[in-house]
Nucleic acid binder design. Structure first.
Lengths: 245, 245
DNA sequence: CGAGGGTTTGAATTAGATCAACTCTCGTGG
DNA sequence: CCACGAGAGTTGATCTAATTCAAACCCTCG
């Protein structure tokens, strides 16, 4: 069962304006709905917060909620019986979760940084979808985008070397930073909210290999590592070239 | 550029009934549209055939068509500059392709068995989507289903051993066979339309490792290999257990 | 200051890749 | 009918990239 230590912050009927002033609206599927009708969405939303390390979606649990991340960042992952873990993605502000077709979630989600999220009843949101085709269209676009990312990740996991994987990862963080969505940034300085273990489980490597590979990239002058959670890209072009072989 | 050696079989304006009698309709997104309105879809469709080995979607080409496979099977893949290949999926009758958001395709597609497919203009089909919300909903469901499959494949590629990968592959073929969609089948007899090289590139392994692993599974009595393209599952339970570690 | 988590580095090990025969199947043509 | 050859698949021997095991090395925080 997913942990929800923090109670909902706002009741669903009380406030019609939170969506209007939502930080995440710009990046989110929600802005497919215009101001006039946003109340219809707002009345379904239950806002809650999740602390780092807490799981808010548990693989196998009944999938009766949709989630929209409005702040913070989280990791999505699948576990094997013996504890092996594959992180299938990192998500940040504006990301939509819970598009399962089956009755249960296909992955777990755990906060990395403190997360704020809007929770929607699956069935109610689905009904609303009928009224707002633009919202459904937006969801379809998101799903397609994620599918493309998933295919790219399959190429990485199936065919790239450790070096190429780490370079690809840094490269994708840099792009995400440019769009100012997932991680804090300042030009080519990447703030990694996740630990080495998370990076390893995302790239299909071990912690040691990730660490060694980063060290080597540093010794070659491609990057700097001012702290474990900060990486500075010194040679973006060479890094990008490395990422694709 | 994608190869289209065979000219379209039927013109788009000539026939309104092909969709009605389409073999693939049951498995396809098309059956979201009722008989009365199916003509609207049919008039957009251009049917063509693709022979084994021919590429009909090329990664990087402008993504101006949607495709619906009505017969045969194909592989979807991404290539790296040096020729490394990752097959991201095998698709069969009823499968929908081309849900790209970007202006270009993110993967290539090549026929394994002779393929028949309906091609739709992206822009026209998108316009039609507005009129048939049920069709759009179906696409969203499909996209979500594929996303779940992609996550499962990431777990396989990132964390499973060769043995577990091959077992997972056979297991998923068996399930696909049960649904009588992708590959021919008779109970636990799997007909593999793809060669060892394709299996290897799907599982992130080499041909040799796939071959060795199958041989070992055979020597352990889990499977039989009457011919290179036929595999008989002798112990489904043990195989399924192996697949998840 | 000292404890404990996360990270880095080093040495030994191994799963799977690579390189290299060999075999099987099947279609062709003598 | 059988020899032949090409392509796909299998099997064996060796090699290596990445893992595993083990030991420091940092930060951070009480």
């Amino acid at each position: 069962m997913a942990v929800f230590s923090c109670p909902p912050i706002r009741g669903s009927l009380l406030s019609l304006e939170p969506c209007l002033s939502c930080d995440a609206r710009g990046e989110s599927v929600c802005n497919a709905i215009d101001d006039a009708h946003l109340g219809r969405l707002a009345e379904l939303a239950v806002v809650s917060e999740v602390q780092p390390g807490q799981t808010f979606i548990e693989e196998g649990d009944p999938a009766d909620s949709f989630f929209n991340l409005t702040a913070g960042s989280a990791k999505l992952f699948k576990l094997m019986a013996d504890g092996r873990r594959q992180i299938t993605g990192f998500v940040g502000r504006g990301h939509f979760l819970g598009l399962a077709v089956s009755a249960t979630y296909a992955f777990s989600a755990e906060a990395i940084e403190p997360v704020r999220l809007c929770r929607f009843s699956r069935s109610r949101l689905f009904r609303l979808l009928g009224e707002f085709p633009a919202l459904e269209r937006r969801l379809l676009e998101r799903a397609a985008t994620e599918l493309v990312a998933a295919q790219e990740q399959m190429l990485l996991l199936g065919r790239k070397t450790a070096r190429e994987r780490v370079a690809s990862f840094l490269e994708s963080l840099r792009r995400a930073g440019d769009e100012a969505v997932l991680c804090g940034h300042a030009g080519l300085t990447l703030a990694l909210p996740m630990g080495r273990g998370d990076v390893a489980d995302y790239l299909g490597l071990t912690i040691e290999t990730v660490s060694r590979t980063l060290s080597r990239l540093r010794s070659e002058g491609l990057i700097e590592i001012p702290s474990a959670t900060t990486i500075l890209i010194r040679d973006p072009a060479r890094l990008a070239a490395l990422a694709c072989g």
